[in-house]
Amino acid sequence: MAAERESTRERTPAGATASGRPRAARLDQPRPARRRLLPTWDPDAFGRLSERIARFLGTGRFIVWMTVVIILWVVWNITVPRHLRFDQYPFIFLTLALSLQASYAAPLILLAQNRQDDRDRVNLEQDRKQNERSIADTEYLTREIAALRTGLGEVATRDWIRSELQDLIKELDDRHAVDGHGRRPGVFPADRPHGRDMDDR
């Protein structure tokens, strides 16, 4: 029996099940790389390179260097002997080089602008979400402060209690009659003079 199992296992391919159908691709494993006829590249790396080139093309250094090269090119092809000239008078090779440079510079600049637009769009979206969160937090804090003010309006403060006690003391003092010595008795019974009251006689 063991020998039959081994032989059956050897005849069954690795990608097939017992029913003979191939297994479905596993989701926990990367798919094998496909062979492509065209060369592959990293779009992000190419985009960064295009941004560097576009940033350099937009500087004064590039304009100065290009002007120096063109002047040297024209002066060389005019002043040196004829057998050393590589681009004579209508300067067709120079015109071709400048046209080639312009044809490559325009798409690189557009690519750099598109990448910058994508970054600006993402930044604007993040700023919008941050502003929404800030507005929500501000509204929540405003409601909490209003609730605290409402709650504090119903709480007795120290000044209010002091004024109420002073009014109560004044009212109690006014209710007591003046005693025989011309003094008003105290508010509390302990403050009254010892002995029998005048009313008890």
Rank of each mutant, 00 (worst) to 15 (best):
M1E: 13
A2P: 00
E4K: 11
E6Y: 09
E6V: 11
E6I: 07
S7W: 10
T12A: 09
A16M: 02
S19Q: 12
R23D: 06
A25R: 14
P32S: 10
A33M: 10
R34Y: 04
R35I: 11
R36L: 15
L38T: 11
W41K: 02
W41V: 02
P43W: 04
P43K: 02
A45G: 12
F46M: 10
I53P: 04
R55Y: 01
R55N: 11
L57D: 09
R61T: 08
I63M: 05
V64Y: 14
W65Y: 13
T67I: 05
I70D: 06
I70C: 14
I71H: 04
I71V: 12
L72T: 05
W73V: 05
W73Y: 15
W76A: 15
I78P: 01
V80R: 03
P81T: 00
R82F: 10
R82C: 05
H83E: 08
L84R: 12
D87Y: 01
I92F: 02
I92Q: 08
L94N: 00
L96E: 01
L98T: 06
A105G: 13
L110R: 13
A112T: 03
N114A: 15
R115Y: 03
R115W: 01
Q116G: 04
R119W: 05
V122G: 06
N123D: 05
E125L: 03
E125T: 09
Q130W: 11
Y140H: 07
T142E: 14
A147H: 01
L152E: 00
L152M: 01
E154Q: 05
A156R: 07
T157N: 09
T157A: 03
W160Y: 09
S163M: 04
S163F: 02
E164R: 06
E164W: 00
E164C: 01
L165C: 15
L165S: 14
L168K: 14
L168T: 14
I169C: 05
D173I: 04
H176K: 08
V178S: 07
D179K: 08
D179N: 15
H181C: 13
G182I: 01
G182K: 00
R184L: 12
R184W: 08
R184G: 11
G186Q: 07
G186P: 00
V187L: 10
V187G: 01
A190C: 09
A190S: 13
R192M: 04
P193Y: 09
H194N: 06
H194R: 12
G195S: 09
R196T: 00
D197V: 03
D200K: 08
